[in-house]
Structure formats: C-alpha cells, structure tokens
Simulated scan of single mutants.
Amino acid sequence: MRSPILRTLALAAVAGSMLLTACTTTGEKDTAPKPSARAALDADVNATLNRLYKISPDAREMVAKAAGVLVFPSVVGGSFVVGAEYGRGALLQHGRIQGYYSLGAGSLGWQIGAQSKAIIYVFNTSDALQKFLSSEGWVAGVDATVAVAHIGANGSIDTETAKQPVVGFVMSNAGLEAGVSLQGSKITKIKL
C-alpha cells in the first residue's frame, strides 16, 4: 500500500503534466507564423521599449548607446510543481530589427500559478553582443552574466549596473521587477 505522500506527489505530477501540455513548444515548421505575426511582434517590441522608457528615462540613453538590445515583449510562464516559460522577441541594433529569437526556461519545485512579463537584454559592449550572436543557444548566467537593472525611485539606473556588459530589465504589469533572476533562460534564433 502506498503512502498518502507518494500518492499526492503522483497526482501532482500527473496534474502538472496535463496542465503544461498546453505550454509545449513546437518546431519552426509546425508554427510558421503569417507575415502579420512578424508585424505584430515588431509592434510589441517597440511598445515594450517605449514602456521601459516611461518607467526609466535613463534606459533610453542606455539603449541608444548599446551594441544591441534583445526584447521579449511577452514571456509567459506557468507552473504546477514544474514551471516553464516561453516567449518570442527580436534583436535590435541601432534601432533596426536584425533577427528573431525564442526564450525558454524551466524550474522545479513547489509552485503554482501563471504570469506574463517582458524581458529586455541590453548588450552594452560589442564583445558581449558578438558572443551572443556566435552562440548556437545562448544561456543567461552560463554564456554571460546578466546584471538585473536596479532602478531608483526617480527612474534612474544604478551606475554600477549600467556598466555591466549585459543588463537585463524585467517588467510586469506593475512595473519593473527587482530581485529577479534571469539565470538559466535559453535564447535561440528562430525564423519568422
């Protein structure tokens, strides 16, 4: 006879796998978006940057000086014991979109819920951007350390953070999030 704890864990695992079935990712061939999907993503990228600039005016100058900026307007995460996040975004250089990327991350532990957030990676140096571009699948925290931006009450970016080769911003509906980790997020180039 199985213990109640093992039975509960088995039921949680089954329920979690059923819940995450809707969050599966498919290959590029399976999800070939229409040209309008590209235009919609481009518009979302620009809207996300404009929202960042309203929250932190310093971010506009930082982005303008950056070697590249990777914007994921909507990273959706869901979890029930096992968590997963997925989103699509675009890399901009000098204000122009240079390519499209997917972001995926997973986690394990007692958790439940769903959320959506925007994630922006600012490559402050050409070297950091080149390492990203030459990777087959760039992983935050493995291929480069990502400093999560610290924003002051007046919207100014902490000067030490702004000096880092790669700076990340995480925005929820409530504004910029502090104390989050971007470690382990895998970013891969896709075709749209």
Results as ranks from 00 to 15, higher is better:
L6S: 15
R51D: 07
A118F: 05
I120T: 15
I112T: 06
V142E: 10
R7W: 14
M1S: 13
Y86M: 01
L49T: 08
Q183W: 00
V45C: 03
Q130C: 05
A40S: 15
L103V: 13
T145P: 04
L133R: 12
F72I: 08
T8F: 14
S172V: 11
K117N: 02
K54W: 00
L176W: 00
W110Q: 07
M18H: 06
G109A: 04
A13T: 02
T26I: 09
I187E: 06
M171N: 01
G89V: 11
A174C: 00
S116W: 07
A39T: 01
G109I: 03
G89P: 10
V167R: 06
A59H: 04
Y53D: 05
A162P: 09
L41E: 06
D143G: 15
I190K: 03
R38G: 01
Q98L: 15
S3Q: 11
L49K: 15
A40P: 03
L11N: 01
Y86R: 12
D42K: 07
S56P: 02
V170H: 11
I97Y: 11
V166T: 02
N46C: 00
L176A: 05
R2G: 10
A90G: 10
A149I: 08
A128M: 14
V166Y: 06
L133N: 12
G184H: 08
F132L: 13
I157N: 04
K34V: 09
K34G: 07
F80N: 00
V82L: 13
A43D: 11
S116T: 12
E61F: 00
K29M: 00
K163H: 10
A178I: 02
G89H: 02
E177M: 10
R51G: 09
N154Q: 05
H150C: 11
P4F: 11
S116I: 03
R51N: 12
G175H: 05
L133Q: 14
N173K: 14
D158W: 03
A174I: 02
L6E: 14
W110E: 03
L176F: 11
L129T: 13
G99V: 08
W138T: 05
F80A: 12
V14N: 12
T159C: 02
G95K: 06
G137I: 01
A90N: 07
A22M: 09
A37M: 04
V180A: 09
A66P: 13
G78C: 05
S156E: 03
I190Q: 05
I55C: 02
T31N: 11
A37I: 00
V166Q: 04
N46P: 00
K189S: 11
V14W: 03
I97S: 13
D143S: 13
V63L: 07
K54S: 10
S36N: 02
A32T: 03
A144H: 13
K117V: 04
T25L: 06
A153T: 05
Y121H: 13
L91S: 13
K131H: 15
F72G: 08
A43Y: 00
A40E: 15
A162G: 08
L9T: 13
K131A: 15
T21Q: 09
V82S: 07
D42R: 08
